[in-house]
Simulated scan of single mutants.
Amino acid sequence: MIAFDDLTLAYDREPAVHHLTGRIDRGSLIALVGPNGAGKTTLIRAIAGEPIASAEGGLRVDTRRIGWLPQQAEIDRAFPIDVTGFVAMGLWAKIGAFGALGRKGRAQVAEALAAVGLPGFGARPLSALSGGQMQRVLFARLMLQDAELCLLDEPFAAVDARTTEELTALLLRWQAEGRTVVAVMHDLDLVRRTFPEALLIAREKIAQGPAREVLSEANLARARLVLASDTARRRDAA
């Protein structure tokens, strides 16, 4: 589904990710992990097709049906839209940005909200939602995109254990349906319990494979050391 060939992504001439080579197979459920500043969000944004200031090497994504779940901080919850209208954005590929939602579309939105535990929330404004409810709404919108490749940036940040458990079950269901799921994750215990695979980076690739093996103490220590060394080098060069 995704292939990296000596990929380097940079901002202001400083690589956020460099010389990354590898692949993510179709149907994978994989966590993208690493210390803060390791380049995880930059990498997943590049996979999603967002422009990066500078890119060298190769990045191939073998589908155009990509679903994207951003961090909550990127959502303007003061925008005057209700939950139904926001979730219905997931249907844009089918009905167009200015197409009428219709009875079928409203039914799909209602089903998606019920699936994430928010039946009857359609008329509420985004500003009235808690953090956990907003995250469920983002998952509902992603469900309607009917994507082959689902990309999620910190999908469980600032949500409680129950919400995390229920939304994690959705990721497992999507994988069982044959979708490829890539998620930026910080909760390493959750990754070990739930994700079959992990890709550990520290601006460069540290390890990839079964999550419990990748997240060994030795690999995590190496990731911290590599990132610290790279940061020190940049500071000395400045």
Score class of each variant (00 low, 15 high):
207 A>D: 14
99 G>I: 07
192 R>A: 15
40 K>A: 02
7 L>W: 07
231 T>N: 14
74 E>Q: 14
205 K>I: 06
49 G>A: 05
122 G>I: 10
174 W>P: 02
117 G>I: 05
79 F>H: 12
18 H>I: 03
159 V>L: 08
100 A>C: 08
138 L>E: 06
166 E>D: 14
91 L>E: 07
34 G>N: 05
168 T>V: 10
187 D>I: 11
201 I>F: 02
174 W>H: 02
31 A>E: 09
100 A>H: 12
95 I>Q: 10
210 P>Q: 05
181 V>P: 01
79 F>K: 08
13 R>F: 06
217 E>D: 15
47 I>S: 01
62 D>I: 02
192 R>F: 10
85 G>R: 12
227 L>S: 02
177 E>Q: 14
183 A>P: 03
31 A>K: 03
31 A>M: 08
131 G>R: 07
24 I>A: 05
70 P>S: 10
80 P>Y: 11
65 R>S: 13
54 S>L: 14
185 M>A: 05
19 H>I: 00
201 I>S: 02
8 T>A: 06
4 F>T: 05
119 P>V: 06
12 D>N: 13
197 E>K: 00
96 G>F: 01
200 L>W: 02
153 D>Q: 00
120 G>M: 07
54 S>V: 03
33 V>W: 03
122 G>K: 12
3 A>S: 15
2 I>V: 15
8 T>R: 06
2 I>Y: 02
4 F>E: 08
92 W>M: 14
218 A>F: 04
224 R>T: 13
169 A>H: 12
222 R>S: 11
220 L>H: 07
107 A>V: 06
66 I>Q: 07
232 A>T: 08
193 R>S: 11
149 L>A: 09
201 I>N: 00
141 R>V: 12
196 P>L: 01
221 A>S: 15
182 V>Q: 07
37 G>N: 09
27 G>S: 09
70 P>C: 09
66 I>L: 10
103 R>F: 01
65 R>W: 11
114 A>C: 09
161 A>W: 13
221 A>Q: 13
